[in-house]
Amino acid sequence: MDWQYLKDEVYFSDGSLRDIYVLDTLRSDWQKWIDFVNENYKIKFEYCDYDGNLKFDDKIISKPVFDFWDKKNDFTVNATINVGNIIVKCYFFTEEELENDIEPLEVKNIDQHDQIIEYLKSVSKILNKEVILTTENYSANYDVLVTVNNNHVLIK
């Protein structure tokens, strides 16, 4: 893969993030993803206890996430995952869609691109689902930049 092409077509600077999606997810998919990232990456997990106190952990804890989805609390949760030197953010917006965000300007070379692709491939394999990298706020009107199905990678 040519770095200049990737920089121009995937990691271009337009002021927006790139979104990583796995669509049609179930809670069991999320638990597999949580277990995977907890075992393989440096994590910073932010959540609130039931008294509203901000807490931090070095692993994602599924209970506060699931309780947020079940509307047992109003406290948002988020995780920062370090994929090499790239920060991947997860805000756990909805159970039906696994979404991560990356800042395209953090991907500065082919090695960092390869780290992101390895992350996408691993997630695809673990969940046995397609993973896509898109322009921010994906919808049918936005560009899919990268599609990953297990080891098969298609770049725009």
Rank of each mutant, 00 (worst) to 15 (best):
V10A: 14
V10E: 12
Y11H: 03
F12L: 02
F12Q: 03
F12H: 06
F12S: 06
S13Q: 13
S13T: 08
S13R: 10
S13H: 06
D14T: 03
D14Q: 04
D14V: 03
G15M: 09
S16G: 11
S16R: 05
S16Y: 10
S16D: 07
S16N: 12
S16T: 10
S16C: 12
S16E: 09
L17F: 02
L17C: 02
R18L: 11
R18D: 14
R18E: 07
R18Q: 12
D19S: 12
D19Y: 10
I20L: 15
I20V: 11
I20R: 02
I20Y: 05
I20H: 02
Y21Q: 13
Y21P: 01
Y21H: 15
Y21F: 09
V22L: 04
V22I: 13
V22G: 04
V22F: 01
V22W: 00
L23E: 14
L23C: 05
L23I: 14
T25M: 02
T25A: 09
T25W: 02
T25H: 03
T25P: 02
L26C: 02
L26M: 05
R27F: 07
R27N: 09
R27W: 15
S28E: 14
S28R: 08
D29R: 00
D29Y: 00
W30Q: 06
W30E: 13
W30D: 13
Q31T: 13
Q31F: 06
Q31N: 14
Q31S: 08
Q31D: 15
K32G: 01
K32D: 01
K32R: 09
W33N: 00
W33D: 00
W33S: 01
W33T: 00
I34F: 15
I34G: 10
I34E: 11
I34K: 06
I34V: 11
D35V: 02
D35C: 00
D35Y: 00
D35E: 13
F36I: 05
V37F: 13
V37I: 13
V37G: 06
V37D: 07
N38W: 03
N38L: 06
N38D: 08
N38Y: 12
N38C: 07
N38I: 09
E39R: 11
E39P: 01
E39Q: 07
E39D: 15
E39N: 12
N40E: 08
N40I: 04
N40S: 10
K42W: 03
K42A: 13
K42C: 04
I43Q: 12
I43Y: 03
I43D: 03
K44N: 08
K44Q: 12
K44A: 07
F45E: 11
F45N: 08
E46M: 03
Y47W: 03
Y47M: 03
C48M: 02
C48A: 12
D49V: 11
D49Q: 15
D49P: 11
Y50A: 05
D51S: 14
D51E: 14
D51K: 08
G52M: 04
G52V: 01
G52I: 05
N53E: 06
N53T: 11
N53K: 12
N53A: 13
N53I: 11
N53P: 02
L54K: 13
L54C: 10
K55R: 15
K55Q: 14
